[in-house]
Amino acid sequence: MNVLTLDGVVKRFGSLEVLKGVSLTLDRHDVVCLIGASGSGKSTLLRCANLLESIGGGDIALFGQSLLDPRIDPDLVRRNIAMVFQSFNLFPHLNVVQNVMLGPVYALKRPAEEVRSEAMLLLERIGLRDRAEEYPDRLSGGQQQRVAIVRSLAMQPSLLLLDEVTSALDPTLVGEVLDLLRELAAEGTTMLLATHEMGFARDVATKVVFLDQGVIVEQGSPSHMFDTPTQAATQAFLARVRPN
C-alpha cells in the first residue's frame, strides 16, 4: 500500500500558484528526493503533506485515507508524519533530552520514564548521550540538526519529511547529518526530502523528482535523472547545480 499519495495537489498563496497539480506516490521504504531551484515549491509540498498548509485542490492520502476528509484529525496525521526543518527549530527552553521527549510525552501521552530511556538510546545512537542535559544553544549546528532528526524519530513515524535539512549548516557539518540520513535510509525509513545535495540524492534516493515552478517536470531513478534526463529544464537545472 502507498504510504503517501499526492494527487493533483494545488496550492495558492493569494494569486500566486505555488503548486500546480502535483502527483506523487511513496511506497514503504521509499526515499524520494525533491530537487529544484529555490521557489520551485519543494518546501510547500512538504508542508502540505502534513497539513501544516491547507491545499487549494487535488487530494492527499495517507495509507489510502484522504486527508481532506473533514473527520480527519490533523494532530493524529502529524503524529504519523514527522518533519525536520532547515532551521532545526529545537525548543530553546528545553534541554536536549526534553526536546526529544516532548512529542511522545505530550502528544502520545506515553509515560515519561519509558520515553526518557528510549530518548537516551536515540541520543546514544547519534553520539550525544552525554549532552542530554544541555540546552540546544550549546550545540553545533550539525549536532542540533541531528537532535532534531532524532526528535522526530522518537514519534516512531511512518513517514519522515525533511526540508533542506543541511542547507543552514556549515559545509564541514553537512556530512554528519547526511551520514545519519544514509543510516536511516538503509534501515528502510520512508522519507520524502527536499534537498540540494545531489550526491546524496544519487546515492540514497529510490526516486528523484524534479520540480520547476510548481510542476513535476520529470521523475525517475537516480541514474535516469542524473545521467540521462530527457527534459530540457532538468538538464539545464542539473548543469547549473553541477558545473563541469
Partner: peptide, 27 residues
C-alpha cells in the same frame, strides 16, 4: 516566539493548546 517553534510543535502532533502551554508560553 518565532513561527518555526509553532511549526515544529504542531508537526510533532501537539494540539494547539499543548503547543501554547509547553512551547509558546514558557518562551
Amino acid at each position: 516566539v518565532p513561527n518555526g517553534q509553532i511549526l515544529a510543535a504542531r508537526s510533532l502532533g501537539l494540539s494547539e493548546a499543548t503547543t501554547m502551554r509547553r512551547v509558546i508560553l514558557p518562551q
